[in-house]
Simulated scan of single mutants.
Amino acid sequence: MSTQSPYLALALIAAASIVFALAAVAVYYRLKLRTMQQHQQAQLEQLKKQGQQQRGRINKSIQIIAQGLLDDQLSLTEGSIRIKVLLDGLAVEEGVQEEFAAFYHLAAATDHIPILEAWKALNTRKKLEFDQQRQQLESDHREFVIDAAQRILGKQF
């Protein structure tokens, strides 16, 4: 029995060493996981804050454009297109889209009119035709777009 005692003692010491090493590794990885989770949480909070700031900037732009429509600083078509794009960028609910449908309707009605480089490439006659169409569409939608611009003032989405 005495010959087995040294082997048994060595086996117990080896087993305890292995258990201790595995426990140390587990503690190390648990601490590393906690640090990673804290870092991830901080990143999520930062992204949320940036998203709220971006949303605030978009809301401010909507207010400026709506006021510009009311002050005749830009055409009804341009203002409607810009507000529609900004509302879409905010992914507003369908009810909001319906409440401010005037912007969506005028934007859709003038969607066929070229813009930017395509507009520049048109000859004068074609530009005049499209401009007359735009003016007629704006005249048809004016009351609704102005009403929507007045109602959107002060709203946050």
Rank of each mutant, 00 (worst) to 15 (best):
M1H: 07
T3M: 14
S5V: 15
S5D: 10
P6H: 04
Y7P: 00
Y7K: 12
L8H: 12
L8K: 13
L10F: 11
I13G: 02
A14M: 08
A14F: 10
A14E: 08
A15Q: 07
A16S: 08
I18H: 00
I18M: 03
V19E: 04
L22N: 09
Y28A: 03
R30S: 14
R30T: 13
L31D: 14
L31E: 15
L33Y: 13
R34M: 13
M36G: 00
Q38V: 08
Q38D: 13
H39A: 15
Q40D: 13
Q41R: 14
Q41I: 06
L44H: 12
E45A: 13
E45M: 14
Q46R: 11
L47Y: 10
Q50L: 08
Q52V: 11
Q53Y: 10
R55D: 03
R55V: 00
I58C: 02
S61A: 11
I62R: 02
I65G: 02
L69A: 02
L69H: 03
D71T: 03
D71F: 07
D72Y: 13
Q73R: 10
S75V: 08
L76A: 04
T77L: 02
T77D: 09
T77G: 04
I81N: 01
K84G: 08
K84V: 01
K84F: 05
L87P: 04
L87K: 08
D88Q: 10
G89R: 04
A91W: 05
G95H: 11
V96C: 02
Q97K: 15
Q97R: 15
Q97P: 07
E98D: 15
A102Y: 05
Y104I: 09
A108S: 09
A108N: 06
A108W: 00
A109N: 07
T110R: 05
T110Y: 03
D111N: 06
D111V: 06
I115A: 06
E117G: 05
A118H: 09
K126F: 09
K127V: 01
K127H: 02
D131L: 08
Q132P: 01
Q136C: 00
E138W: 01
S139R: 13
D140H: 13
H141F: 01
R142A: 12
E143L: 04
E143I: 05
E143V: 07
F144V: 08
D147C: 05
D147P: 03
Q150C: 07
Q150D: 07
R151Y: 05
L153T: 15
L153D: 12
Q156E: 08
F157Y: 09
